[in-house]
Design a protein around this nucleic acid. Structure first.
Lengths: 88, 88
DNA sequence: CGTGTAAGGAATTCTGACACG
DNA sequence: CGTGTAAGGAATTCTGACACG
């Protein structure tokens, strides 16, 4: 709830925790699927929510979806949960 | 519960979040007050629980306690919570 | 005792690009 | 389109030590 969304994890750890390569994680950011924060120095910081999101993303990728399609799905889910439907 | 205790935060972030210097954080580890994990490379990783602990530690230090006294307090609290008393 | 700091090195991350497909 | 990689640089962290008190 409070810790879940705090952006504090470095990309190396995220890579370990998700099984994705650092390259993939950066790419998904470029494609607007995740939104890490940055330290003053420019180092990316992720939250546990980001990690869960990334795991979902990797599942969608395995299903053959393209990044823009996954982005569409995210929008739909956001709209749905806004209406009190599927959360996750 | 699950995220609270995952060791994933680098010492620089911990320093920012607690207001303590990196030097202090490392010292409190040396004095057995906190127990970060390490990456393969040797970089320390802390949990949100560690951050809460550190904040408590800094309060005790301000109260003039010495590190070994704080360690005693930690033990007492652990024993108490084990008996179902004060948790935190 | 608790903490600051300069020192030298190692690990981590960053960006932009070339490559493949 | 999605991902790997070599390249060069910058930010982050590590340890052991000297200093002060």
């Amino acid at each position: 709830m409070t810790y879940q969304d705090k952006k504090v994890i470095t990309i190396g750890l995220v890579s370990e925790l998700t099984g994705l390569s650092i390259r993939q994680i950066r790419y998904y950011e470029q494609r607007k699927l995740i939104f890490p924060e940055r330290t003053k120095g420019g180092t990316r910081k992720y939250s546990f929510s980001d990690i869960e999101k990334l795991i979902q993303i990797s599942e969608h990728m395995e299903d053959g979806l393209q990044t823009f399609e996954i982005r569409q799905l995210q929008k739909k889910n956001m709209a749905a949960s806004y209406r009190g439907l599927t959360s996750t």
